[in-house]
Amino acid sequence: MKNGEKKILSEKVADMLRTKIINGELQADSRIIESDVAKCMEVSRGPVREALKILEFEGLVTYESNKGCRVTNLSMEDAYEIFFLRGNLEIMALRQAGGRLPDTSLLTMRSYLEGMERAQKDKNLLYMVQMDELFHREIVSAGNMKRLVRMWESLSPLNGAMFLKVNDTFELREGETAEEIFGNYRRRDNYESHKLLLEKLCGIDLEGAVLCLRNHYVQTGERIYKIESRRRLLKETL
């Protein structure tokens, strides 16, 4: 098999597994067996291994020596760092642009927002991840800082893992109550939060847009850390 053909096959396998993971068909800690995937996809194990390397880079699977691959989700520590960094990079880009995005970018972002609305109605998390990535790319690109964009892009492969972590964190476990785990906080609607952000950007409300980004990223990371810490503490006291 030629290298190009192998790459195409590995991407197809990665797409299939990514879809299953993000849409919940393969849940956290599920084992992924290379031979089973190869048989299902009617490919050799080589492309499957390459696909798993791609997904490991994206934070969706974890490889352990002598144990193979399992579906993972981000630790609360990793989640906090990624949300903090990604949010602050976008805020820096937005401030660099003076809060002004080109009209073409705003129109494009509106189409992505409509895509988010469809994804939310259809409960299609993978499509939501894709629309979210494209929406935020317009913001970080507005700063016209190539190194900043590259730093942001280095975190982009983890976007799907970030969505999964949020969903996992805000799903009540058996025996938990919303009051003891979440307190007074209630999860924000993803579509509505992006709609508000776009309104601030269209109105050239720099500080309002910065606040939206801080709430969307930094505060979300902080809440994940607090909720997971509370879970750990409650588990230790049982």
Rank of each mutant, 00 (worst) to 15 (best):
residue 1 M to Q: 10
residue 1 M to K: 14
residue 3 N to G: 14
residue 3 N to V: 15
residue 4 G to Y: 07
residue 7 K to D: 13
residue 11 E to I: 06
residue 14 A to Y: 03
residue 20 K to Y: 07
residue 22 I to K: 01
residue 23 N to T: 13
residue 26 L to R: 06
residue 28 A to Q: 10
residue 30 S to T: 08
residue 33 I to M: 07
residue 35 S to Y: 08
residue 35 S to M: 11
residue 40 C to F: 14
residue 42 E to N: 14
residue 42 E to Q: 14
residue 44 S to N: 07
residue 45 R to Y: 08
residue 46 G to H: 12
residue 47 P to S: 03
residue 47 P to K: 01
residue 52 L to E: 03
residue 52 L to A: 05
residue 55 L to E: 00
residue 55 L to Y: 02
residue 57 F to G: 15
residue 58 E to M: 09
residue 58 E to K: 09
residue 61 V to E: 02
residue 63 Y to S: 05
residue 68 G to K: 03
residue 72 T to S: 13
residue 79 A to H: 04
residue 80 Y to K: 14
residue 83 F to R: 05
residue 86 R to A: 15
residue 86 R to K: 15
residue 88 N to V: 09
residue 88 N to M: 11
residue 89 L to D: 03
residue 91 I to E: 02
residue 94 L to V: 06
residue 95 R to P: 01
residue 96 Q to S: 14
residue 98 G to Y: 06
residue 99 G to D: 07
residue 101 L to E: 01
residue 101 L to D: 02
residue 104 T to R: 10
residue 104 T to D: 10
residue 106 L to E: 01
residue 106 L to G: 00
residue 106 L to Y: 03
residue 107 L to R: 10
residue 108 T to A: 12
residue 111 S to L: 11
residue 111 S to P: 04
residue 118 R to P: 06
residue 118 R to F: 11
residue 123 K to M: 13
residue 124 N to M: 05
residue 124 N to R: 02
residue 125 L to A: 12
residue 127 Y to D: 15
residue 131 M to W: 01
residue 132 D to K: 00
residue 136 H to M: 11
residue 139 I to P: 01
residue 139 I to T: 03
residue 140 V to L: 05
residue 140 V to P: 01
residue 140 V to Y: 00
residue 142 A to M: 08
residue 142 A to S: 15
residue 147 R to M: 15
residue 151 M to Q: 09
residue 153 E to Q: 08
residue 154 S to Y: 07
residue 154 S to R: 07
residue 154 S to N: 08
residue 158 L to H: 05
residue 160 G to A: 05
residue 163 F to H: 05
residue 163 F to G: 04
residue 164 L to N: 00
residue 165 K to N: 12
residue 166 V to M: 12
residue 168 D to W: 14
residue 171 E to I: 09
residue 171 E to M: 10
residue 174 E to F: 12
residue 176 E to G: 07
residue 182 F to L: 08
residue 182 F to A: 05
residue 188 R to G: 09
residue 189 D to A: 06
residue 190 N to K: 12
residue 193 S to L: 05
residue 195 K to H: 11
residue 197 L to W: 00
residue 198 L to T: 01
residue 199 E to I: 15
residue 199 E to C: 13
residue 200 K to D: 05
residue 202 C to D: 11
residue 204 I to F: 09
residue 205 D to K: 08
residue 207 E to P: 08
residue 207 E to R: 08
residue 207 E to F: 09
residue 208 G to H: 04
residue 212 C to W: 06
residue 219 Q to N: 14
residue 221 G to N: 02
residue 222 E to F: 11
residue 223 R to N: 04
residue 224 I to K: 00
residue 227 I to E: 02
residue 227 I to V: 09
residue 229 S to C: 10
residue 229 S to D: 09
residue 231 R to D: 00
residue 231 R to K: 02
residue 233 L to C: 12
residue 233 L to F: 15
residue 235 K to D: 13
residue 236 E to K: 11
